[in-house]
């Protein structure tokens, strides 16, 4: 399998609970891949395995392989912090650091990595806020609190924060579920613009969102990857009966 990220026989557990079962999947570079499926199907756990966030939960473990550009990120030699720098993540609820300004939020990751040069920080703040399509809205107000802006702006600030450390992959876990349709459309437009530079994987409950923005879609059910393919094909003529039932709303 070829892909920016490739999982091989990936299993994830929370204690005794087997949340992700033997998933083999290749996430292509410079494209948006959506992961859909009902609540509890393991889609968030799957992407959290891709940047080694899964293991930070007490009792959680993962087995199998996850390759980033052909290198196994679970290799004992691999530094999880370096993996997380390359693979950024944005969560469901916008979570800017509440005590920090917009500026400080944008460059928080860089500072954590020890960057102290103001001109570099200034450049990174502007670049990442521009990439996140937020610059024009906040450029005169960079000293305001990160939580003083709207929910949609906060979410784009979180995307800027993730982009500031120059990742290669951007993982988004339900990034629009707390946003209104206009803020959602802005995030979707942004992801569309970003996909030329990054590999993007988005977990979403919203099938129309997957259909609108994703080049590839993965459907998961009860921890298993049921079907993976081009979004257009999957939504027009799915191969698996289960996928058909889920996307047409015939799950009872």
């Amino acid at each position: 399998m070829e892909g920016k990220i490739v999982t091989e026989r990936l299993n994830a557990f929370f204690g005794e609970v087997h949340a992700v079962k033997n998933v083999n999947m290749a996430i292509p570079a410079n494209a948006i891949t959506a992961i859909i499926g009902p609540s509890g199907c393991g889609k968030s756990t799957l992407i959290r395995c891709v940047n080694r966030m899964h293991e930070v939960v007490r009792g959680a473990k993962a087995t199998g392989k996850v390759y980033l550009d052909g290198e196994d990120i679970y290799d004992p030699e691999t530094d999880p912090v370096e993996v997380r720098r390359k693979v950024g993540m944005v969560f469901q609820k916008p979570n800017p650091f509440p005590t920090m300004t917009i500026y400080d939020n944008a460059v928080a990751g860089l500072r954590l990595n020890g960057e102290k040069d103001w001109s570099k920080l200034d450049g990174a703040a502007e670049d990442s806020l521009r990439l996140a399509a937020l610059w024009d809205e906040v450029k005169d107000n960079l000293g305001a609190s990160g939580v003083s802006i709207s929910g949609g702006q906060q979410q784009r600030l979180c995307i800027a924060r993730a982009l500031a450390v120059q990742p290669e992959v951007l993982l988004l876990d339900e990034p629009c579920s707390a946003l209104d349709p206009i803020a959602t459309a802005k995030i979707e437009d942004l992801l569309f613009d970003l996909k030329d530079r990054y590999t993007i994987a988005i977990v979403t409950h919203n099938m129309q969102q997957a259909a609108r923005i994703a080049d590839f879609t993965a459907f998961m059910y009860l921890g298993e990857l049921i079907e993976f393919g081009e979004t257009k094909r999957l939504f027009e003529n799915p191969e698996e009966e289960l996928t058909e039932k889920y996307i047409t709303g015939r799950f009872g």
Partner: peptide
Amino acid sequence: QSPVAKDLR
């Protein structure tokens, strides 16, 4: 209703 798959076809 945004029909998909066999409904859309």
